[in-house]
Each structure stands twice: as C-alpha cells, then as structure tokens.
Amino acid sequence: MKEISIPFNKSTQVGNEIAYIKEALLSNKLCGDNLFSKKCQKWFLEKGFKNPLMTPSCTAALEMTGILMGIEKGDEIIMPSYTFVSTANAFVLRGAKIVFVDIKASDMNIDENKIEAAITHKTRAIVVVHYGGVPCEMDKIKSISNQYNLFLIEDAAQALMSTYKNKMIGTFGDFACFSFHQTKNFTSAGEGGLITINNETFAKRAEIIREKGTNRTAFTRKEISKYSWIDIGSSYLPSDIQCAYLFAQLEKSEAIYEKRKSIWNKYYSGLKELANKNLINLAKTGDHINHNAHLFFIKLKDINQRNKLIEYLSNQDIEVVFHYLPLHNSEAGKRFGTFSGEDQNTTMESNRLIRLPLFYSLKDNQICKIIQKIKDFF
C-alpha cells in the first residue's frame, strides 16, 4: 500500500515532552493529580479558567457534566447534530433525550436563532460545540440559557485558546470540556481532556465524582484525616505521564498557536481565488471572534464533487478527509434523539465539507502543493 506523502494529521512535538515523561517515570508517581497534573491545572488557572480538572478525555469530562447536573430519564438536552458522538452519549448514558438543532452554513456551529424553538418544559441544558475552534454566538446563547434557567455546557474540544469578544472560550458556560486527543492543537500523548467548572456550586462535587465518588482530593490536600465513599462517581483522572506530555505543549502554546494560524492564513489566501469564482466556499466568521486554527475546511458543490476531490488528492499523495456524519441520521441518533424543526443545513453542508491537512510540522512547500492541486482539480 502506497504511503501518503502529505498525511492529514501528525501529532505535535515541540519541546520537553520526552524529558518530562522521563521525569514523571523517575518520580515513581504516575497516577493522577501528581506533579505534571498540577502543573497543567496551574497553567489553566493562570489563563483564567475556573476549577480546572484534568480528565482522561473530553468524553469523560462531558460525562461528568451529566452527573453533576443530575440528568435523568426524560430530560431533554439541546445540541447540534453536527458533532462527535461523545457530545450526545454523555447525556444518553443518563437517560436523556437529545434534541438536535440545525447549524449555520457559515461556520458549522449551532444556529443560535433556532435554539429557543427547541425548548420544552423537559429541557435541562444547552450544549454548544465550537466547531473547528470557531466560537458560537455566546451572548445570545447565554441569554437564552439564563432566560429559561437552563444549564449551558461548552463542548470546547477543538477550541482551546479561541476567544469570543476577547474572552476565552470555556469561560461562558456552567461547564466547559476540552480535548487533548492526538488530532487536537495540544495533545497529552494521544488522549486526554479537561473539565472547567464555572458554576461554583458544583466545584467540590466535581472533585468527588472525578475520584470514584470519594473525597480523596480533599484528603490529599490534608483538609481531612481520611477519605471515604460519599457519592456516585468514576475514575476520571489521567495519568501523570499524559499530563507530562501536555505540559510541554502548554509551555509552547503561543508558538503552536502562531504556527497553526500561519498555516490557516496561507490556505485562506491561496484558495480565496477559487472562492471568489464560487467554485468553493470558505468559512466565514465575525470580527468579534478569534479562532485557534484547529482545522481548515472547504466546501464543494455537493457530495459527488467532494468525493471526486478526495479521490483526486489521494492520487496526488495528499490525504484529506470529510468530518462528522450528522448524529440525527445515525441509528443511535434516531433512537435516542429527535431533530427540532427543519434540517436545512446540517446534512447538506456536512456532505460538502472537506478538511485539509493542518498540523504543526506542515511545511510551506506542502501547503503550496495542496493549494495548487486543488486549483488543478478545478
């Protein structure tokens, strides 16, 4: 099988990852909440995030929000269908029904103008997904959540270091969940996550749920003389080796951010000519939004043209991919959820979308090749 010369993704390694992993190994303290876990949590505190707790994945962080909110059978959770399955699974596991809302074609985020129509007396929460690191319209969404007394959760898996009106994504909702999977801007050796608790009411209980339902975290801070089982919970701590890798990346976060922005801007400048000719569509965002260049997508005329371009670029040794299949069209989505209103954009726009390679070590000549081959296709 021929190797792709330009892969879709490569994990980032920029600094002291190996050295910090070695340090963690030599410490003989490899479980969660040790040296590098604490270093990472301190970094997030200094960035303005409240009550940051490292988790094994964003999936685990989302599951914690379902427990913290006391989601039960019959509750309804509003979210976009264009997202990863973990966004829905976290609440289906608690017995909730998912109510999917259409997205906007411009940025693939939930349409804030269609949320209110999906609210019923059973609605407990709104979950927003900041697709590709592009923030949702948080002012309006937060206003709706306040008006109807609903929880607001930010699935910020792709959005670390993105801002909305100069405020960090992850600081708007009652809870925010981040991912450090290999495909993300910053990774903790392949898997990892974070939950932040902006609603102080839930801060102490989050620590307990994360530690198997015990008050062990308070015990390690020497606030109590022994710990015991006091609530439901699970094992939601990552190993210190994962956090050692992540901390090396957080130390270089500005460099990673600037490099990815540079790649994103080169793609945009190089492909704008095709967009001006209406051959492709590019993402559109407002001036009050600053994204983190998590991904770069283009949209083709339809699914057939999209698939032809994917095949063409593969033959040019360039790996590109489409993204999520809308959850409401899936077997489980039909069983556990319903679509509010009309699916005007979700299915159609997802069928048109292609993601281009975007990773820290992507070279200028590779970017130029990708742009040129897309132009050649047309």
Rank of each mutant, 00 (worst) to 15 (best):
I256E: 14
T285D: 13
T346N: 12
D287R: 08
L353H: 02
I98L: 14
D174R: 10
V85N: 15
G270N: 02
L295Y: 06
E76G: 02
R124L: 04
P7V: 01
K10T: 08
L271P: 00
I280Q: 02
K122G: 06
G190A: 04
I298T: 00
K10R: 00
H181I: 04
F178C: 12
D364Y: 06
T187S: 15
G337L: 03
Q158M: 11
W229M: 12
M69N: 07
N304T: 15
H291M: 09
K104R: 13
N292R: 13
I298F: 02
G132H: 13
E23V: 00
T217W: 15
I67Y: 07
W264G: 05
T12F: 04
N329P: 04
E331F: 15
A60Y: 01
F172K: 09
V99F: 05
H328L: 03
K266W: 01
V99P: 07
Y257L: 14
T65V: 01
L274I: 01
N149Y: 08
W229G: 08
R355Q: 12
T55V: 07
D317N: 15
I298C: 01
I230R: 09
L327E: 12
K50H: 01
I119C: 03
G190L: 04
N166D: 03
A96F: 13
K375G: 05
Y131D: 13
D287H: 02
K97V: 05
S361L: 02
Y245V: 02
S57P: 05
D231M: 03
V320A: 11
N9T: 00
K165A: 08
F186C: 02
I67M: 08
A24H: 05
G193K: 04
G270L: 01
T338H: 02
L62T: 07
F151G: 08
D343R: 09
I115F: 03
W264F: 14
R124W: 03
T346Q: 05
I209N: 14
S145A: 04
I371M: 09
N290D: 14
Y360P: 10
N109M: 06
T83F: 04
R355V: 04
R221S: 14
N109G: 11
I144W: 06
Y164E: 12
N365L: 13
N51A: 00
G333T: 09
T171M: 10
F84S: 15
N351A: 11
R221L: 13
K22M: 12
G32V: 08
K284S: 14
M54A: 04
R221N: 13
E137A: 12
K97S: 14
P238E: 03
E17I: 02
L45R: 15
A105W: 03
A189W: 06
T220D: 13
T347N: 12
F339C: 03
C368F: 05
L250I: 01
K104Q: 13
N51Y: 00
K252P: 06
N278W: 03
I208F: 09
Y148N: 09
G233V: 06
N276P: 09
